[in-house]
Amino acid sequence: MTTVEENKAMIRRFYEEGANARNSAVITELVAPEFIGHYPDVVAGFSGTSQGPESLMRDLEFIAAMVPDFRTTLEDLVGAGDKVALRGVTQGTHTGQIPGVPPTGNAVRFTWCAIYRFAGGKIAERWLNDDALSTFQQLGMIPPLPQPAN
């Protein structure tokens, strides 16, 4: 079993050398083929879970398509046993277009928390919470104020 410090080092590499550098080879190296991701229900669109490193790459491509200059900063890592919890900030400029979502040009800033579990020296599971309400409001995808139902 990898140590807490080794697990934290994997997380730092995942974000700095993988996500921020848009290097999918690093993600493939660090993430177990049987990886399971647990997402907030609404955003996932697939019953709250996803599988495999390719699901993480799809997420990164989704963000990069809208926020091409996005960069994630890790603000705190808390590790014990086979888990590392962290809080992070992802920020950039909403200049990219995906179907149905015109770029706002906004500077966007998303704060999130995640817990990662490690097995066999790889990232095996993740529970992510990313306040999609704030995220989608900043991207102009839903109105700034949720209106009560009529």
Binding site: L133, I142, A149
Partner: peptide, 22 residues
């Protein structure tokens, strides 16, 4: 305390906002 709450799922579950998953 640092909090992150999935408020979108909450308000959607209450029918306060509609959102089509990507």
């Amino acid at each position: 305390v640092w909090y992150v709450s999935d408020r979108l799922s909450m308000v959607q579950g209450l029918g306060l906002i509609s959102w089509a998953a990507r």
